[in-house]
């Protein structure tokens, strides 16, 4: 177990660097020029050639890709104002990912990305957490039920529904929810933002209710795809567990079917689900880009979406690095949990 953990930890850094490299290259290989983006300098209209030049040299966009990547990683700042050893003025020596500095936005140079990300995450993380918990709370019982009732009429209906939910794209589902429940449809629930206009004047209790009502549709839009995926996975591993001989042994003891299913089959079936719990994390982060854009929620997803439109390399890289880091850590955590939950691995 110790050796396994050490090996996993040793792999963490190369995986992380690999991901950052791929993202770094993908962003730069995409067409478009961050210097020429819309609204570069709204006061003076179209940017002058000198402005563009200054912007490019400030962000090292005129330097070779390798220098740009090293600058992104840091911790030595290679920009004109950076580390003196690399020809800078020494004004700003420490920066880069490895110095735990995400830098400032291209678009708004006075905004520190780390601080902005923190603000955005405070919106996105609770939504994603709710969506994840909701998906699990529904998917595990539903998947287990589907396996036990396999082939029954109602189960077939549920299977079709899950398959459809799993297949339809998240943005379409989100739009459908907006149309169906929002102002143009049943108008049961708000579909824009997280607070009503003038929410700050509401009392604590009403304010919370307002927030919850605003969160329902985004959380649903985020959760449904993952829910369908999870339920199908749980159904599959539950079917496998139910076919095992130890289930017959449990029945041969005269145990009630409920105990056979919950204690003997479900317990084994949920082991692989521990890893799946983490695999839906990237799906939730990716989903938040679409859902937050459609529902107008100022979270990390919309931050990433805006940065993509603006070709703000610094922000895109920061968001991706953060999600990659969180996903890698969560995968590691899931593997440790899995090993802990399965006595065959725990007591190898």
């Amino acid at each position: 177990m110790g050796a396994y953990l050490r090996r996993r930890l040793a792999w963490l850094l190369p995986s992380f660097l690999g991901i950052t490299l791929i993202v770094f290259l993908a962003v730069r290989l995409a067409p478009g020029d961050p210097a020429l983006r819309e609204g570069f300098d709204p006061s003076s209209g179209a940017p002058s050639a000198a402005d563009l030049e200054r912007f490019r040299s400030e962000h090292l966009l005129d330097r070779p890709l390798l220098v740009q990547y090293l600058h992104f990683l840091g911790p030595f700042d290679l920009s004109p104002r950076g580390q003196r050893w690399f020809g800078g003025s020494g004004e700003h020596p420490w920066s880069g990912l490895l110095a735990l500095d995400l830098g400032t936005e291209f678009r708004r140079p006075h905004v520190h990305i780390a601080q902005e990300l923190g603000r955005r995450l405070a919106v996105t993380a609770p939504l994603a957490l709710c969506a994840g918990l909701f998906a699990f709370a529904i998917a595990i019982p539903l998947g287990a039920w589907s396996a036990v009732r396999r082939g029954h009429k109602r189960e077939r209906g549920v299977a079709l529904l899950l398959f459809t939910l799993h297949s339809i794209p998240g943005f379409w589902l989100a739009l459908l929810l907006v149309l169906g429940f929002g102002a143009s449809g049943l108008s049961w629930l708000p579909v824009l933002g997280l607070h009503s206009a003038g929410a700050s004047e509401l009392s604590g209790w009403e304010w919370t209710l307002d927030l919850v009502r605003h969160s329902i549709l985004p959380v649903l839009a985020l959760a449904l795809g993952s829910l369908a995926y999870l339920a199908r996975q749980v159904r599959g591993s539950m079917l496998e567990a139910l076919a095992q001989e130890y289930v017959i042994t449990a029945r041969s003891k005269g145990l009630p079917e409920r105990v056979v299913i919950l204690r003997h089959a479900l317990r084994n079936a949920l082991l692989p689900t521990i890893t799946l719990a983490v695999m839906i994390l990237p799906a939730l982060v990716g989903g938040s880009v679409i859902v937050e854009t459609i529902f107008g929620i100022p979270g990390m997803g919309r931050y990433a979406y805006e940065a993509l439109l603006e070709r703000d390399y610094a922000v895109i890289q920061a968001v991706t690095a953060l999600s990659a880091f969180v996903t890698l850590l969560a995968l590691l955590f899931a593997d440790v949990c899995y090993a802990w939950a399965d006595p065959r691995i725990r007591h190898g």
Binding site: Q244, E245, Y246, T249, H264, R267, N268, A341, D342, P343
Partner: peptide, 11 residues
């Protein structure tokens, strides 16, 4: 049962 490995619950 025949195969005690399969007939006992591993967890």
């Amino acid at each position: 049962f025949q195969d005690a490995q399969a007939a006992l619950n591993p967890v």
